[in-house]
């Protein structure tokens, strides 16, 4: 089967984000960027399915600025077959992303879409579910295990109380959680090979999707700062302190 994997370019998870002084957003100038970690897990899962001969082709899609090509290249070096960049400098909201992905699904006709469960920048956790709804497909969100059972997929999901397994008819959408797999590092030869793989460059207008934001960002502020407290010498001192503030 054919798999579509959307990948997002985001701030590197090891970088501490800083809010701009004018409150308009987070300062991303000269900040190290990376593939969203959950998208990496999605690519890895697709590649493993291909290695098991469950999947025949992996198409990567990124919606973002010209530099999102680099993000697609990383996925191609991990084992993706080709890419589509839907280029825009706008901050595209999950609903518009889902609409663009739906249009791509309509033309590419994949059997499965694997997305990350959330992007670590806007922390929305929406795109996969929205895409599934627009397509009227079933979804297996927050996946920590995926197995093919005949013509269905069994997806084990990380839920608040533990784990839940659902069976999905295909085509379907999966969103990845942290423990689905550990993404590989692309090897140098694979990075070289990925340079020759095809990336189609499109625009949201090519898919007839209006990406004008529906939500207006009024302001972005620093969270309330929490001050470091005090060092306590030993367990007795800790217990005394906790008693004095009524915490125990």
């Amino acid at each position: 089967m054919k798999v579509l994997v959307p990948v997002k370019r985001v701030i590197d998870p090891n970088v501490r984000p800083r809010v701009k002084a004018d409150g308009s957003g987070v300062d991303l100038a000269n900040i190290k960027m990376a593939m969203n970690p959950f998208c990496e897990i999605a690519v890895e899962e697709a590649v493993r399915m291909k290695e098991k001969s469950i999947v025949t082709e992996i198409v990567l899609v990124s919606i973002g600025p010209a530099q999102a090509q680099e993000t697609i290249r990383i996925g191609l070096a991990m084992g993706g077959d080709r890419g589509i960049l839907v280029q825009t400098d706008m901050a595209v909201e999950p609903l518009a992303v889902a609409k663009i992905l739906k249009a791509i699904v309509d033309s590419e006709k994949p059997d499965l879409v694997i997305t990350g469960k959330q992007a670590i920048d806007d922390d929305s956790n929406q795109t996969g579910q929205m895409l599934a709804a627009l397509l009227d497909w079933p979804q297996g969100t927050f996946a920590s295990g995926v197995t093919k059972e005949g013509d269905k997929l069994n997806v084990t999901r990380e839920v608040d109380g533990g784990l839940q397994t659902v069976s999905l008819s295909l085509p379907a959408v999966i969103t990845t959680d942290l423990r689905l797999n550990e993404p590989r590092f692309a090897s140098l030869p694979n990075i070289m090979k990925a340079k020759k793989k095809l990336i189609d460059v499109k625009t949201p207008a090519d898919y007839g999707v209006d990406v004008t934001p529906r939500l207006q960002v009024v302001k972005v502020a620093e969270p309330k700062k929490r001050e470091a407290g005090e060092k306590v010498a030993d367990v007795d001192a800790l217990i005394a302190k906790l008693k004095s503030v009524g915490a125990i």
Binding site: S124, N125, Q126, G128, Q129, M130, A133, E158, L215
Partner: peptide
């Protein structure tokens, strides 16, 4: 995990952008 699973489907069907968390 239940709310996060369901709400975006509802939002997409209503053609509205969800405000998360």
């Amino acid at each position: 995990t239940t709310g996060k699973n369901v709400a975006p489907r509802v939002a997409a069907k209503l053609d509205v952008m969800q405000v998360s968390e």
